[in-house]
Design a binder for these strands. Structure first.
Lengths: 178, 178
DNA sequence: CCCTGCGTTCAAAACGTTTTGAATGTTAGG
DNA sequence: CCTAACATTCAAAACGTTTTGAACGCAGGG
């Protein structure tokens, strides 16, 4: 195992932990990822538990999640019985994987709920009193706003997913619709 | 107070609560926002506590947060001593406000940590052994990747902040109302 | 087969966040 | 000023999440 260098490791790893939290993962996942990212050599569960001072059980569970998110992969070291892990260091790959399995689903769910609400309101139209009809019209307005927003988000996500290898600033400026 | 219409209110409000959670707010904030959004009239703290079946204390605290995030505003009803609230219904306004006070800060912090690490590594160069120097070079590579990513994120955010007015929801929204 | 050295699981403990309601502030009207 | 009608605060309780470590499972070597 390599040593760390003048505290750079620590602060970067802590920062990544913080970010992980921000993005709705947990701290440990972020720190594990950061630790792997800053290590030229793959690390074993024990190495990780050791370096981050957390229990092996936690490392095991969190590494499974990291694998699921496509943020780390197992590496086989010949002659070794231990599992070794490496960070997926292509940031775009990581982003795409997370968008694909989480953000996307979330946006789709939102759109589905909104769509269902619109359908309900529209098909109930006939049976409503004039007063209720007014309220329904108001709901439809608000819900349409939300729908517009999520449709926009959906397009943005699909755009990111579509750009296979390199996204540059161009891509973002072109997301604009109007 | 208006009644709700065939469960549309409930599912939409619940959905917004869920999303709030996803975006790192809490559930109650989302539900409060959703409730306000679907009410043509401003609501008082008591109305909200009543409608969501939560304590007034909680409503009070969460409404303060909503105001801070620019997601709701107070409305003065003449002849009334109660506080009334309305949702900020311009989605772009909401997004911009949240990006501006949260995401942006987060990205800046990340960039600062990374920048400091790079500086540390570079200025320590001279005192390192050849071996350490190799490790330092590796760190610099990884950290530069991260930096690239966050610089991209920063540009994207600034773009949204700058262009927000020109992005047109209606263009994306193709819903028949009524 | 039976060790040994791993990884995984899971219930309990630690820890963190949210909710509540009683106490406390605040304001306007009388 | 006082009071009534509200809003706000905050400590305790409820609830949720994360961490731990002991128990278990599994594979490979002897």
């Amino acid at each position: 195992m390599h040593g760390t260098l003048i505290g750079v490791n620590e602060s970067t790893v802590a920062g990544i932990g913080r970010l992980a939290r921000f993005f709705g993962f947990n701290d440990v996942m972020g720190r594990l990822y950061g630790t792997l990212l800053l290590n030229p050599e793959p690390l074993s569960l024990d190495d990780l538990a050791d370096q981050l001072q957390i229990s092996k059980g936690s490392v095991s569970m969190n590494m499974r999640d990291l694998e699921r998110w496509g943020m780390a992969k197992e590496v086989w070291m010949r002659g070794e019985r231990k599992k070794y892990y490496q960070a997926e260091s292509d940031m775009w790959q990581v982003i795409r994987s997370v968008i694909n399995s989480r953000e996307r689903r979330e946006v789709q769910m939102a759109l589905q709920v909104l769509g269902e609400s619109i359908t309900k309101l529209q098909s109930a139209q006939a049976e409503l009193t004039p007063e209720e009809r007014e309220l329904a019209a108001y709901y439809l307005e608000r819900i349409a706003d939300l729908q517009g927003f999520f449709q926009f988000a959906q397009m943005a996500l699909e755009t990111v997913l579509g750009k296979a290898d390199s996204i540059d600033f161009e891509a973002v400026t072109k997301i604009e619709i109007g």
